[in-house]
């Protein structure tokens, strides 16, 4: 059940990325290029996703527990610290260079474009490095 549920959620997420255009780096970079070939489409992706999630979460949270787990495990931190800002800034620079954030990079992988085949292993290496540095810093 857990595997089926996880797979279906990932599949729906990936189809959403493709349908919305987020799996196409050219479209993402045009969204970020406000001074040039601006394509505002991705504002609709963020809007649709966030509003749906906002409403859905509030329905789900009325339950005492999730369907396949003992309890809800939500992020609890509220502080705005230096790692949050540094990490977000580094991520933004990388996103602006490649046009990929983590979800679209995974979904684009089976299409095997040269750039994707370089990006995904580099991203996984980066995750390992970033977690290592974060662990040392605390």
């Amino acid at each position: 059940m857990r595997a089926v549920g996880g797979f279906l959620a990932g599949l729906i997420f990936g189809l959403g990325l493709i349908l919305s255009g987020m799996a196409n780096p050219a479209k993402v970079l045009n969204f970020l290029d406000i001074a040039g070939s601006w394509d505002a489409s991705l504002a609709f992706v963020m809007g649709g996703a966030t509003i749906t999630t906002y409403l859905g979460y509030r329905i789900i949270w009325r339950r005492p527990a999730p369907i396949l787990s003992d309890g809800f495990a939500l992020p609890t931190r509220r502080d705005i610290d230096r790692p949050l800002l540094t990490g977000a800034a580094l991520f933004g620079i990388g996103w602006g260079i490649g046009g990929f954030c983590p979800g679209p990079a995974w979904t684009a992988l089976p299409m095997a474009a040269t750039g994707t085949l370089i990006f995904v292993p580099a991203m996984l290496l980066g995750i390992v490095a970033g977690r290592g540095i974060a662990r040392k810093a605390t």
């Binding site: 799996a23 196409n24 780096p25 050219a26 992020p75 931190r77 790692p83 949050l84 800002l85 540094t86 990490g87 977000a88 800034a89 580094l90 991520f91 933004g92 620079i93 990388g94 996103w95 260079i97 490649g98 046009g99 990929f100 954030c101 983590p102 979800g103 990079a105 684009a108 299409m111 474009a113 040269t114 750039g115 994707t116 370089i118 990006f119 995904v120 292993p121 580099a122 991203m123 996984l124 290496l125 980066g126 995750i127 390992v128 490095a129 970033g130 977690r131 540095i133 974060a134």
Partner: peptide, 28 residues
């Protein structure tokens, strides 16, 4: 989809996206 094929650019982009999101505890 159109993906840049620059090995250096995409290598750096991937490292920054992975390290930045892991260090900043989250992505898009």
């Amino acid at each position: 989809q159109t993906v840049s094929a620059s090995p250096v650019g995409m290598g750096i982009a991937g490292l920054l996206v992975g390290a930045g999101t892991a260090f900043g505890s989250g992505c898009t």
